[in-house]
Design a protein around this nucleic acid. Structure first.
Lengths: 239, 239
DNA sequence: CCTGCGAATATGTGATCACATGGCGGCATG
DNA sequence: CATGCCGCCATGTGATCACATATTCGCAGG
């Protein structure tokens, strides 16, 4: 894996006001979310530091945060890797997404404006373009942006971080699933969600969000976890 | 605030197999959860290191993790503090707890055994003892242990960390609320939950859990946020 | 040829240091 | 006496080093 594989070079100039560890964190988080890092792959502090051209310190701090966000996992040999997936865990993650995102969407409804709907429609168009172009990085990123835009309408300070943690845990496998599926047609119910938003129909919105999560991801993932993800790494625990 | 105020001295011997940063993390997390640290209070790396008798490095890493878990908040002056509370945020936190914990409880039901129920009953007794003794630290800790014991029955790898994050955010204010309320009678619906468990009645369990969260905490917190928590710190943002 | 032991290497952890920034108080000035 | 400026002190950030441990690779013995 090369440096450009691991982290997008698009961000982080010399005059970036963020601290180095924040830049490293953002880049690693995106790499995980977009599935650029192989599940089970161990990440080393010195290795990442060399790739990113920084010292070990910012990398250490970024890895700690990502472990806390459950995007990475600390093994008992004290090394850090992308967590492996089990069917049970995947099922839990989807279930958590459903209840959390359905509720977040419902709570956003009172704050939905026509302007927000317009922005969501534009974002949906971006998603469709990415799908047409078979650009999975863009698709995943735009898809998350769509959801975050909706849930963030209410300025919900509690829901979004939890949802982002779930995405971070699913990301590596979602990407892999899309790359594996032959037809890799992606399903989304965003038009249904948008219709519900226009009618200010909270119940329909909940249903659309739940359907979007379940139909778009659940069946895809469960098909490939078994044959692709498990037992790929020699030792290691799941704790 | 003295060292013994901030961290319980009960854990962390010389032969603790955990790394120093993990010990520091556990102690700080407990301090936040039990409300030992004042909301808005800024924590300094060097200060904590001195109190805990360690160098700055483990403290830095622990603070980073707690920020990622939302138990602490990174201000744009780069200092770290206990987040302030707003009514909106409290409302969000309770709502997230309700949907997440009700679902987690329902998903645990298939794994409920008589032995688990017996352990939960014992834990409920511990809670009642703590309440009778007016020991709020013990009450909060035992209460969380009760919920975690139930949700953990299914080995749910996704729900528990999210729920723990919510507790960490509520903890400082819950403790403060209990100390403030004159009668400080604590409500819990654990007996209802236990009855539902014995009947293996998932719907009743959901209702009991939701009632436990809402009745036990929601009304308590909302009464004192306004007059006690806000504007206690000079500057500072909420980001 | 396989297996087990041991040395060399890689890695995480913790400590310490240098530096830039922010906060705070004293002091001068109007 | 009030106000604004300036310098000192506290603090976070990043780098580097020493050390303990884990891993790995090679070699010897069966």
């Amino acid at each position: 894996m090369t440096a450009t594989d691991l982290v997008a070079e698009t961000q982080g100039g010399a005059d970036d006001p963020r601290t180095l560890h924040q830049q490293v964190l953002a880049r690693l988080r995106q790499s995980i979310l977009l599935g650029r890092i192989e599940p089970g792959q161990a990440l080393t502090i010195r290795g990442l530091a060399a790739e990113l051209g920084v010292s070990a310190m910012p990398v250490r701090e970024a890895l700690r945060e990502l472990v806390a966000e459950r995007g990475l996992e600390l093994m008992d040999n004290r090394r850090v890797r992308i967590p492996l997936m089990t069917i049970e865990r995947f099922d839990d993650l989807i279930a958590a997404r459903v209840v959390l995102e359905a509720e977040a969407a419902a709570r956003a409804m009172p704050y939905v404006t026509d302007a927000l709907i317009a922005r969501l429609e534009a974002q949906d168009a971006v998603i469709n373009e990415a799908e047409a172009a078979r650009d999975y990085d863009a698709w995943i990123g735009a898809n998350f942006a769509f959801h975050a835009m909706l849930y963030g309408a209410a300025g919900q300070s509690a829901f979004l971080p939890l949802i982002e943690s779930l995405w971070l845990q699913i990301g590596p496998f979602l990407r892999r699933a899309m790359r594996t599926l032959s037809g890799h047609y992606t399903v989304d119910r965003h038009s249904e969600a948008l219709a519900a938003l226009r009618r200010r129909d909270t119940m329909a919105l909940r249903i659309a969000i739940e359907a979007d999560i379940r139909d778009g991801i659940a069946h895809i993932g469960s098909t490939l976890i078994r044959r692709d993800m498990l037992g790929k790494v020699p030792g290691g625990n799941m704790a």
